[in-house]
Lab assay of single mutants.
Amino acid sequence: DEEIEKWIETLLKRNISLRVNGKDLEIGSEEFKEWVEKFIKEV
């Protein structure tokens, strides 16, 4: 979905790490990609 890709790009540009389930996810890491894929499937 384009919306999500733009959102991810924005996050990448800002180099933010997300806190997911109490863990810091490094943007661009494998864990982050897995989380994004799960997130996309749920939406």
Rank of each mutant, 00 (worst) to 15 (best):
R14A: 09
L18I: 10
K38P: 00
E2W: 13
V43F: 15
E42V: 10
E9I: 14
I40M: 08
I4Q: 02
L18W: 05
I8Q: 01
K38H: 07
F32R: 00
L18V: 07
I40Q: 02
I4N: 02
W35F: 07
E34S: 13
W35G: 00
V43E: 03
D24M: 13
R14G: 13
I40C: 14
E30S: 08
R19G: 02
W35P: 00
V43I: 13
E26L: 11
E42Y: 15
T10V: 07
N15Q: 12
K13D: 05
L12C: 09
E26M: 10
E37G: 12
G22L: 08
L11A: 02
K33D: 03
I40P: 00
K33R: 13
E37A: 15
V36Q: 01
E9L: 13
R14I: 12
F39A: 03
I40L: 12
S29M: 09
K23A: 06
I8V: 05
L12W: 04
I8H: 00
I27V: 10
K38W: 14
F32M: 03
N15I: 15
V43L: 14
K41E: 03
F32V: 03
K23V: 08
E26T: 09
I4D: 02
W7P: 00
N21F: 10
E34A: 15
K33M: 11
G22I: 07
F32Y: 05
F39V: 05
V36W: 09
K38R: 12
E5T: 10
K23G: 02
E3L: 11
V20E: 02
D1E: 10
L25R: 03
L11M: 06
V36S: 01
L11H: 01
F32N: 00
V43G: 05
I8P: 00
R14H: 12
E37R: 15
L12Q: 02
V43T: 07
E5Y: 15
K41S: 05
E5C: 15
G28N: 07
K6D: 08
T10L: 13
K41D: 03
I4A: 04
K23W: 09
S17L: 14
V20N: 02
G28D: 07
V43H: 10
D1H: 13
G28E: 04
I8W: 08
K38L: 07
G22Q: 03
D24R: 10
E37P: 01
T10P: 00
L11K: 01
W7R: 02
W7A: 02
K38M: 09
V20I: 09
E42I: 13
N15A: 15
L11E: 01
V43Y: 15
E9G: 05
E9Q: 12
I4T: 03
R14M: 13
L25C: 14
T10H: 13
W7I: 05
E30Q: 13
N15R: 15
E37F: 15
V43D: 03
K41Y: 04
W7C: 14
R19T: 05
V20G: 02
S17R: 09
D24N: 10
I40S: 03
F39R: 05
